[in-house]
Design a protein around this nucleic acid. Structure first.
Lengths: 174, 174
DNA sequence: ACTTCCAGGTTGAAGCGTCAACCATTCGCT
DNA sequence: AGCGAATGGTTGACGCTTCAACCTGGAAGT
């Protein structure tokens, strides 16, 4: 068995192992902070946050799944739990009756507003504040390049502008 | 409630959301490839790979857990499955009889050697080959900075040199 | 030696994600 | 109209990770 594999160079290997470590530890760290401070998983928070930015705080399940980088079954389970906790409601879309619309409740909105500051603080502490402005841009470019391979069809996220939840009390982001 | 939260700037937010997406999608992509081609999870492979690089292909469970960025219970469960499949064996350490030593079997070694090429190929396809040499170094520095926050005590990985499994057939990496 | 504490590991229950199967609705074609 | 395929979503079973509880063996103090 001849070996024509292109092995990684020492530098590539080191960078790769560190990325591997980050990809392993970062989600766990975010989960921990949110679980402790808000009884929410990182993904739960993402779902609520995306809804909070959407027009009428409403999104189709399929769109919400795409913009949170998740499969539909996963979102369906998560939405069921969040609905049971009163953070969102699901209704049939009367325009296309196959579709389900998820809407953030008032309580869900309050939850996001209350949770966002500590979450942003954690993101700063773990990532953003440890990098120079230049490194932030490098990271952006690198992540974009990798996403090109991970998400070839570009179904996922990337585009939507984001609202600052600090101007709380009833804005609509429309 | 006054708001003194330091929100992310637009550039920071974009870079963060992309990193978030990568951290979400990359592990799943690696799991898929390895599951399909070798019936191994990414973490299973990591465990076997680390053992394959160790002196005598043997490591203490606690050291193995640290070098794979995992908790001990997680490794314990994984090791039980891998042992049941014949890829490694666990024995008491006669030096410190609290400790357990995990040793890669000959079959486990063959598994790693057989699996490594396609895995490296996937790592190249998804990450390394999509970046310039400069970006690889940038990624290395960025990941190192973030790991400083994720792993303050530096218990984890980072140091060990790595052996190229292509020179297979019984080297000891010692 | 005896007690106390800590390190190393394992186990079982609980929670979450994945996959395959399934139902409902709409679209495309004739 | 009417049939078949594709889209949107939910459900249940299974596998993996986490957490807390537990057990054993070594270290430190007396």
């Amino acid at each position: 068995m001849t070996d024509d594999t292109r092995w990684l160079t020492a530098r590539e290997l080191q960078a790769w192992m560190r990325l591997e470590a980050v990809a392993e530890l970062l989600p766990a760290a975010l989960d921990h902070q949110l679980q402790r401070d808000a009884d929410l998983s990182h993904y739960d928070y993402l779902v609520l946050a995306k809804l909070s930015e959407a027009p009428d705080r409403t999104l189709r399940m399929s769109g919400l799944a795409a913009s949170t980088n998740a499969t539909l079954p996963r979102l369906s389970h998560v939405a069921a739990r969040l609905e049971a906790r009163g953070f969102l409601t699901r209704t049939r879309d009367e325009g296309d009756r196959r579709a389900t619309l998820a809407t953030l409740t008032e309580e869900g909105w309050r939850k996001v507003v209350a949770t966002a500051p500590s979450h942003v603080g954690e993101v700063r502490r773990l990532v953003v504040d440890r990098l120079t402005a230049e490194q932030v841009e490098q990271l952006d470019a690198i992540a974009l390049a990798v996403l090109g391979a991970l998400d070839p069809e570009n179904r996922l996220q990337a585009q939507n502008p984001v609202v600052d939840p600090s101007d709380a009390c009833g804005n609509e982001a429309g």
